[in-house]
Design a protein around this nucleic acid. Structure first.
Lengths: 107, 107
DNA sequence: ATGATTACGAGAATACACTATCATTCATAC
DNA sequence: GTATGAATGATAGTGTATTCTCGTAATCAT
């Protein structure tokens, strides 16, 4: 919640170990998976490896992926006509827009 | 080229084996990687596993990923204002828009 | 406190995409 | 046709993200 952006399990682990240094990977994977299963977190699949997780109750938004630090950030806007872009006969049920570049810290 | 959509190495293998049944994975990975390295193919990273490859000289476009058959298709349109969506201080150098749903064949 | 139950964490085990190895096959030049 | 070098493909190996195992530790009810 305090991160305000999607986190990988590895990031959760690092954050968590600042509070509970003995925290292990198994606990992170176990609980993140459980929280996702119970609907508290949702999975975000971005290019470049593992799943990321974010709070499930966020309003519709998209993501920015920094090519330098590999952190994901939220983008709170969405081009609206998206659903209409699919070829005829294709049924769109959701979409993801990913911006690539360098985040403010890495610029 | 004849597929007209991004293919995973596994898909390339299956296509190829219809022509040369003895074709092996190593040859596919080797050549796809070489073609990408030489600029003939470009890598497409979509959620859900391995890299996909498409012809490098295609005009700007995006992708549709069928949740049922896991095949990727091209979407030949792009919402234009994309660059402007990033938070202040973030530098966007490219973007990817992915539509999820069911393709015409799976509907 | 005591026992029962649940959660934890270290490290082994797994899954999977990809790569390396190397004997064999193919292609080309002569 | 033969020699020579490159490409192929079966299979073993690697790397890495995730999950399992199981002994230990924390939690809870009584």
């Amino acid at each position: 919640m305090s991160a305000g952006r999607p986190l990988t399990c590895e990031e959760v682990l690092r954050y968590g170990q600042q509070i509970v240094p003995s925290l292990g990977v198994a606990t992170v994977y176990r609980n993140v998976k459980m929280l996702a299963g119970e609907g508290w977190l949702s999975e975000v699949e971005l290019p470049g490896g593992g799943l990321r997780y974010e709070l499930a109750d966020l309003p519709h938004h998209h993501h920015f992926l920094c090519r330098s630090c590999d952190q994901a950030f939220d983008v709170h806007q969405c081009p609206d006509e998206v659903q209409s872009l699919a070829p005829a006969g294709f049924e769109v049920d959701s979409h993801e827009l990913i911006l690539f570049g360098r985040c403010a810290a890495c610029t």
